[in-house]
């Protein structure tokens, strides 16, 4: 420190030292602030991910669980699942299930958002309250409620459908047929997912300036055209986020199927998450289960690329 700076420091002691401290902390401070969270995330997420990759190359069954050491078998788990027709069936079923659920969620979510935008304030409040209540219901709770509603004996759905002359639904078992079983599971998933999509989209809609709609309407655009050419392009970023999030959530659906099938789903109810879980915790083939789980992670990474890109862009724009 030169004599000149020393003098200045003496002249403006508080200001300069504060400034210098700010500049100094700029160097080390962010790392110090990040350190605790990074260590914990690394320990609880990084290590398990590493272990997952390692397990997928190992034979890890009950004997290995006792000795704490897996048996290295190279790519054998992967060759096994890739040559297993069951794996491909489950993958196809999961993709179909995800596509159906995401489309239905986005369709109904968008329609309800558009409805919310056109309702009066009282009706809007009523509908929003209903949506928030549904959103708040824990998945485990809603699965049990839906099980009760589709109960084959005293379920309210069978009674209503019979009364509406939709057919004879007395003592109809919805899970006897896989397709109708997945219909019920889809209903639970979509019902629970609609509120988030509808409320978020409505919030975004209400930020679109009304003049844009008016201008389009004056130019003779129909309702559908206004939506397609004015609303949609403006909402595209939020749409990408919502679709990616829905894909990510629906691709890993587990609880709904697991609880609805009473913890004992048959082969034809397997989704990827269930398949990996059963191979690990029922058959005790932890290595094989890990390989299945890892293929799931890879699929998710591809899908979430778009989401992450959009989120990072949005985050940087602020």
């Amino acid at each position: 420190m030169s004599a000149e700076t020393g003098l200045r420091v003496a002249a403006e002691p508080t200001l300069l030292s504060a400034r210098r401290r700010a500049r100094l902390t700029r160097g080390a401070a962010p790392y110090a602030l990040l350190a605790p969270a990074t260590i914990v995330v690394g320990a609880v997420l990084g290590y398990p991910l590493y272990l997952l990759v390692q397990l997928s190359f190992q034979k890890y069954g009950l004997p290995q669980l006792l000795t704490h050491h897996g048996e290295w078998t190279g790519l054998s788990n992967y060759t096994r699942i890739l040559h297993d027709s069951q794996f491909w069936h489950v993958l196809l079923r999961t993709v179909t299930f995800t596509a159906a659920n995401v489309s239905l969620t986005m369709l109904f979510g968008t329609l309800i958002a558009l409805l919310l935008a056109r309702l009066g304030s009282f009706m809007r409040l009523l509908l929003t309250t209903g949506l928030v209540l549904v959103w708040a219901t824990p998945v485990v709770v809603s699965v049990n409620v839906w099980l009760w509603m589709v109960d084959y004996e005293f379920g309210v759905l069978n009674w209503t459908l019979t009364k509406l002359h939709a057919g004879n639904f007395v003592h109809h078992d919805w899970f006897a047929n896989t397709l109708s079983g997945f219909g019920v599971i889809t209903a639970v998933v979509v019902w629970g997912a609609i509120p988030f999509v509808a409320i978020t989209l409505y919030a975004a809609l209400s930020q679109v300036p009304e003049e844009l709609h008016e201008a389009a309407r004056i130019d003779g655009a129909s309702f559908v055209q206004v939506f397609r050419f004015v609303t949609m392009p403006l909402l595209k970023p939020i749409f990408i986020i919502l679709v990616s999030l829905s894909i990510i959530w629906d691709f890993q659906v587990f609880n709904q199927v697991w609880i609805m099938r009473d913890g004992r789903p048959t082969n034809d109810y397997y989704l990827m998450s269930i398949y990996s879980f059963v191979e690990s915790f029922r058959v005790s083939e932890y290595g094989l289960g890990s390989a299945i789980a890892l293929t799931m992670v890879l699929v998710m990474l591809v899908v979430s690329f778009f989401y992450v890109r959009q989120m990072v862009r949005a985050g940087e724009a602020e």
Partner: peptide
């Protein structure tokens, strides 16, 4: 997915 992390 949480399901993938459960095993490790």
């Amino acid at each position: 997915p949480l399901n993938a992390l459960i095993i490790p």
